[in-house]
Write a protein that binds this DNA or RNA. Structure first.
Length: 428
RNA sequence: GGACAGGUGGCCGAGCGGUUUAAGGCACACGCUUGGAAAGCGUGCGUGGUGUAACAGCCACCGCGGGUUCGAAUCCCGCCCUGUCCGCCA
């Protein structure tokens, strides 16, 4: 949600931000609605003030036992204009809100120009792509033959874009989640949270999922939304609150399943674990002051990268261009892990600084140490990491020629000391 | 699912047709006091909108939406949410 006063004061900056998003300028149109709205408010308030004064006089007169008919008649004569004025002011105010609430956030100045993912800019790389002495398999070819990655069973029970993990792979998923949570809570300073996965409209609205992205979420027949990411409940932890600056920053992490309808993704990534209706993810959310959010964003991205470093997975970090960012974000880093089975880097984390966009929608404010009043908080969220895709990356990067998979050092204690996930032939 | 009780500022809490211009307290800020602190005393302090160069002023807001009335936090209707008890249940 945008602040109309910002648009009033800096229409050019607003339009420049939209342009970076690939959108046409809107400030002139919005300011015209705002102008009409303010005129309507002034007129309506003038009438309201008149009614109020007269009503007070009537009250005083009645108490004294004096006649009040003249004043009562005068108020009555105002009624039509009053009703119309109030309705007009409300209508224009609502119109402005509806226009503003579907607009995306403005990109920060250092976000690159660009219409789509081709405009994204790689900013760093870590780790070397392994040199295989044999043609590397993809994760499906590694997982399915052992029966521990079972798409066929999932199809029978839930349809496409679901999976059963069993045995070593189920445990590997759990090990990864636990490893990530432990890292974030110990070194990262994040508080572990186990949040609700069904949320109400207002929570989905607060982070910007509603009203625009309803079709991307699953909805229950009694009115709940299944969370598409733990960002939704975690960020909403501060909705409708006024925090003391001393309490900041707040840092939350959660391991949850995420549910996405993947509307519009038909035919995309149909093979394997890459794009499912339900996938596990460890999420990070930070709540900070406007002054701190840029630093916090770098820190958060660094924590996500640290997971990959510990796991020994090669990755690159890119900054998304204006045309490729999610609507709530002012700046987004994607981290892409190297997947030898696909011979490509694939997104495994996305870390966004949402500025005050979500805070404004949620009513999330804080009281600054210095100065008066309240200010909107800044909210940030990032995956660290998408656990399903991390599992894919482990399988593909740590595979051996016989189809077995070496367990990375960092995970062995979480796997009961297991060093090797056996190949299909080794199983009976 | 059933019954009842409630939703008032950052928090607690009074008010239940007209000086509410939302009491009072807590918290917070500043000052006095003090060797320093606490306590005490004094002053200030809700949110949003509109308006202004900035003040001032004005309007709205007591869960949300309607209605009654000259006038609604207060009365009426609908909805949402919360709590308690009962039922069911991991």
């Amino acid at each position: 949600m945008h602040d109309i006063r910002f648009i009033r004061e800096s229409p050019d900056a607003f339009d420049a931000g939209l342009k970076k998003r690939g959108l046409a300028p809107l400030s002139a149109e919005l300011l015209e609605i705002d102008r009409l709205r303010r005129a309507a408010i002034s007129e309506s308030e003038g009438l309201q003030a008149k009614r109020k004064a007269l009503s007070q006089r009537i009250g005083i007169a009645k108490r004294k036992g004096e006649p009040a008919e003249a004043a009562m008649a005068e108020v009555a004569s105002l009624e039509t204009a009053l009703k119309q004025g109030e309705a007009e002011a409300a209508r224009l105010d609502e119109q402005l809100t509806h226009r503003l609430e579907v607009l995306p956030n403005l990109p920060l100045d250092d976000v690159p120009e660009g219409a789509d993912e081709n405009g994204n800019v790689e900013i760093r790389r870590h780790g070397n792509q392994r040199n295989f002495s044999f043609p590397p398999r993809d994760h499906v070819a590694l997982g399915e033959p052992t029966g521990e990655m079972d798409f066929a069973a999932a199809v029978k029970i839930s349809g496409s874009r679901f999976v059963f993990l069993k045995g070593h792979l189920a445990r590997l998923e759990r090990a990864l989640a636990q490893f990530m949570l432990d890292l974030h809570t110990s070194e990262g300073g994040y508080t572990e949270v186990s949040p609700p996965l069904l949320v109400r409209d207002n929570a989905a609205y607060g982070v910007g999922q509603l009203p625009k992205f309803a079709e991307d979420m699953f909805h229950t027949d009694n009115g709940y939304w299944l969370v598409p990411t733990a960002e939704v409940p975690l960020t909403n932890l501060v909705n409708d609150t006024v925090l003391d600056e001393a309490a900041l920053p707040l840092r939350y992490t959660a391991f949850t399943p995420c549910f996405r309808s993947e509307a519009g993704a038909a035919g995309k990534d149909t093979r394997g674990l890459i794009r499912l209706h339900q996938f596990p993810k460890v999420e990070l959310v930070s709540i900070t002051t406007p002054e701190q959010s840029a630093v916090e964003h770098e820190r958060m991205t660094g924590r996500a990268e640290e997971v990959l470093r510990r796991l020994g997975l090669p990755f690159r970090t890119i900054v998304l261009c204006g045309g490729d960012m999610g609507p709530a974000s002012r700046k987004t880093y994607d981290i892409e892990v190297w997947l030898p089975g696909q011979n490509a880097y694939r997104e495994i984390s996305s870390c966004s600084n949402c500025g005050d966009y979500q805070a404004r929608r949620m009513g999330a404010r804080y009281r600054p140490k210095e100065g008066k009043g309240t200010r909107y908080l800044h909210t940030l969220n990032g995956s660290a990491l998408a656990v399903g895709r991390t599992l894919v990356a482990i399988l593909e990067n740590y595979q051996n020629e016989d189809g077995s998979v070496t367990v990375p050092d960092a995970l062995r204690s979480y796997m009961g000391g297991l060093e090797l996930i056996p190949a299909p032939a080794a199983k009976k």
